[in-house]
């Protein structure tokens, strides 16, 4: 039983790590500020959730698992707030969204 649990948790955590890497690749690769934000939200949601789920399977039913659940809730409540305020600040400072025909430049005053 515990071996199966171990394998499932390894698979979940590795998948989470893969999604984190994909998100990071997206942050590096995407053109323009807003498109990069979409890539970063993959890390915040799927990557973080899968890793925390994997750790939850490891910890079993203890105080640590309660803390992990709180950690997950924290990510889910706070990451959209942070992203929205980031996007809002960029928008109000006049960062233009990238468009396919406009070329790779999306920089503006900072």
């Amino acid at each position: 039983m515990s071996a199966v649990l171990d394998i499932v948790s390894i698979v979940l955590m590795t998948l989470g790590g893969v999604f984190c890497v994909i998100g990071a690749i997206g942050v590096l690769r995407m053109p323009g500020f807003y498109t990069r934000m979409h890539a970063a939200s993959v890390i915040d949601t799927l990557g973080a959730s899968l890793i925390i789920l994997g750790l939850l399977l490891q910890s079993g039913f203890t105080l640590a698992s309660a803390k992990l659940v709180i950690l997950w809730l924290l990510i889910f409540f706070c990451s959209p707030t942070a992203s929205h305020s980031l996007a809002n600040a960029a928008y109000s400072r006049g960062v233009k969204p990238w468009e396919p025909d406009q070329g790779a430049s999306s920089s503006s005053k900072n």
Binding site: G16, C20, G23, A24, V27, F33, R36, M37, A40, I43, D44, G47, A48, I51, I52, L71, I75, S79, A82, S83, L86, A89, A90, R93, V95, S106, S107, S108, N110
Partner: peptide, 18 residues
């Protein structure tokens, strides 16, 4: 832009947390 840096800093914070 400075927002790109802030975005990366936020994401690094999440990763450091994990």
């Amino acid at each position: 832009t400075v927002f790109d840096r802030a975005l990366a800093a936020n994401a690094i914070g999440t990763l450091a947390m994990l």
